[in-house]
C-alpha cells in the first residue's frame, strides 16, 4: 500500500484580487521506502505540495491519503497530531529553536506527543537520535555554535524522533556547501536503506535530485514527468572519492 496517495490535488491562493493556482490537479503515489526527489523551478508548486503533504496546509480540492487515512479534511488539532506522529520535516533554513540546545531541539516533538514520556526518557531518546547523526558530543551546543551541516543533522535527528512514516525535506542542501550537502544526502540514503524510511526531497537543483530513487518534475503546478531514477547517485561513494575536506566538527 502506498504511504502517500494524492489524487487531483489543487491549491489556489488569493493574493488580493488575483487567484494564484499553485497546484492544478496533482496525482501521486509514493510507496514505502521510496526516495522521491521533487524538482522544478521556483513557483512551480513543489513547495505547496510539500506543505500539503506535510499537513501544514490543506488543499483547495482533491484527496490526500497518508498511510491509508484521509488527511485532507482533518481539523487543526488532528493535523497537528498527524505531523507529530507521521511526518518529519527537514527545512532549508534548518529551523532550529535559537538559544536552545541541540538536545532540547531534538526533544521537541516528544514534548507534543500524546503518550507522555518522562523527562529522563525524552532525554535518553533525544541523545540516542543525536548520536545516530554523530553529534553526541554537541548535545549541549546551541544552534549558533554549530556549523550548517551540524545544524541540519540536528534537524534530521529531530525529524526522526517520533519514527515518522515519511521524511519531508524542503531544499535541505540549499544553505550548505557541496561536501556537506552530499553528507546530508548520504544520511538520507542510509536512512532509507537501513530503516526503510520514505523520503520526499524537494529541490530546484537537478544534481541534488539525482540522489533520489525516483524523480518527479514539476512545472506550473503540474507534474510534467515522474520517472524512476535509473542512474541514482550514491553519496557515500562520492564522499569516499572526495578529498578529505576540513570537517567542520
Amino acid at each position: 500500500m502506498a504511504v502517500i496517495s494524492v489524487r487531483n490535488l489543487t491549491k489556489t491562493y488569493h493574493v488580493g484580487e488575483v487567484a494564484v493556482h499553485a497546484l492544478r490537479g496533482v496525482s501521486l503515489e509514493i510507496e514505502k521506502g521510496e526516495f522521491v526527489a521533487v524538482v522544478g523551478p521556483s513557483g512551480s508548486g513543489k513547495s505547496t505540495l510539500m506543505h500539503i503533504l506535510g499537513c501544514l496546509d490543506s488543499p483547495t480540492s482533491g484527496e490526500y491519503f497518508l498511510d491509508g487515512a484521509d488527511v485532507s479534511h482533518l481539523s487543526d488539532d488532528e493535523l497537528s497530531e498527524v505531523r507529530n506522529h507521521k511526518i518529519g520535516f527537514v527545512f532549508q533554513g534548518f529551523n532550529l529553536l535559537p538559544r536552545t540546545s541541540a538536545l532540547e531541539n531534538v526533544e521537541l516533538p516528544l514534548l507534543y506527543n500524546a503518550g507522555s514520556l518522562s523527562a529522563t526518557e525524552r532525554r535518553r531518546r533525544a541523545m540516542e537520535a543525536l548520536a545516530a547523526v554523530g553529534l553526541r558530543d554537541r548535545a549541549e551546543h546551541h544552534p549558533n555554535q554549530l556549523s550548517g551541516g551540524q545544524q541540519q543533522r540536528v534537524a534530521i535527528a529531530r525529524a526522526l524522533m517520533n519514527r515518522p512514516s515519511i521524511l519531508l525535506a524542503d531544499e535541505p542542501t540549499g544553505n550548505l556547501d557541496s561536501r556537506t550537502s552530499i553528507e546530508v544526502l548520504d544520511i538520507f540514503q542510509s536512512l532509507r536503506e537501513e530503516r526503510g524510511i520514505t523520503i520526499v526531497l524537494i529541490t530546484h537543483e537537478p544534481s541534488v535530485a539525482e540522489y533520489g530513487s525516483r524523480i518527479v518534475a514539476f512545472k506550473d503546478g503540474r507534474i510534467v514527468s515522474d520517472t524512476p531514477n535509473l542512474r541514482q547517485r550514491v553519496a557515500r561513494g562520492e564522499l569516499a572519492e572526495m578529498p578529505i575536506a576540513r570537517e567542520d566538527a
Binding site: 520535516f89 521537541l108 507534543y112 517520533n162
Partner: peptide
C-alpha cells in the same frame, strides 16, 4: 513567530 511555526510543524497544537 518562526518558533511558533517550528513548534506547530513538529506537532504542537494551537492550544499547546
Amino acid at each position: 513567530t518562526r518558533e511558533i511555526g517550528i513548534r506547530r510543524a513538529v506537532g504542537a497544537k494551537a492550544n499547546d
